[in-house]
């Protein structure tokens, strides 16, 4: 009877854990198969344990180049999208101007449009303008679809900032530049950081829009997509797992530091 009661009380938690299992299972499989010694070109069935792929993560032609290309594009598009998006977020959060509804719609649409539609339309534009697709066109596309997400993240922070702090700085004879650099920017930094991280993740992982705008440039997702047709080396799993481990470590360190800071304040 006690067991039944316990189950009853915790059924939601158990179901939640099952759902989490469903969400993490592929990551576990990816990690496991990074140690596989595949029999043939495709890495879908377990054949034997080996560390080969981890010892030579760049052992497949083009794979590390594609990661480097993805990194470059992600960093550049994050920088531009964060700068443009932060400016828009400040305008939306701090000023009054005409056509606010239309502007909100223009920002909302890219987030609510299926990627394949944006990719195909951008591809059509480049085709019509006779612009050769490649590194620059991928960058243009990534900045475009990251922009709105940066705006949302920064705007939420800007709306929550107390304008009195900036007024106080002005009362203390700070110049407008000083107010912005010493008060406004540090206050908005968490929102800007969140927006930039989101933009980086979106850009690094994007496949669909990139597929329509990449030409001969191969990003890491494009490499994986091509590999799925030709043969999937375990190195794909190594890079996928390494990214996962690095990102989780960064998040965890951030969490620990945040909780320590909270304790110090308390």
């Amino acid at each position: 009877m006690a067991v039944v009661n316990w189950l009853r009380r915790n059924v939601i938690v158990l179901f939640g854990l099952l759902a989490l299992g469903y969400m993490t299972l592929p990551n576990i499989v990816v990690l496991m198969f990074s140690f596989n010694d595949p029999n043939g070109r495709f890495n879908y069935t377990w054949n034997g344990f080996t560390l080969d792929a981890w010892e030579q993560p760049c052992g497949v032609a083009g794979i590390c180049d594609s990661v480097a290309v993805s990194m470059k594009i992600a960093v550049l598009s994050t920088l531009v999208a964060t700068a443009l998006g932060t400016a828009i977020a400040f305008a939306l959060g701090r000023y009054r101007f005409r056509a606010r509804g239309a502007i909100n719609t223009l920002l909302f649409l890219p987030m609510s449009m299926p990627e394949v539609v944006m990719g195909a339309s951008l591809g059509t534009l480049f085709l019509n303008m006779r612009i050769n697709t490649g590194f620059v066109t991928i960058l243009i596309a990534h900045i475009m679809f990251c922009l709105s997400f940066v705006v949302v993240a920064v705007k939420a922070r800007v709306l929550g900032m107390d304008p009195k702090l900036e007024e106080a700085a002005q009362d203390l004879y700070a110049s407008p530049t000083q107010v912005f650099l010493r008060v406004t920017l540090p206050l908005a930094a968490p929102g800007i950081g969140a927006g930039a991280m989101l933009a980086f993740a979106l850009s690094f992982d994007d496949f669909v829009i990139t597929n329509f705008t990449s030409g001969n440039t191969v990003t890491f997702p494009m490499f994986v997509y091509g590999a799925a047709q030709r043969g999937t080396p375990p190195q794909i799993n190594v890079i996928g797992s390494a990214m996962f481990v690095i990102a989780v470590l960064i998040v965890m360190i951030g969490q620990i530091r945040a909780s320590r800071r909270a304790k110090q304040r308390a």
Partner: peptide, 17 residues
């Protein structure tokens, strides 16, 4: 963290899994 963490591996790699 566990809900968001899978995102850090490219969705193409996870779909292959």
């Amino acid at each position: 963290v566990l809900v968001i963490a899978p995102f850090f591996t490219s969705f193409l790699v996870r779909t292959l899994a």
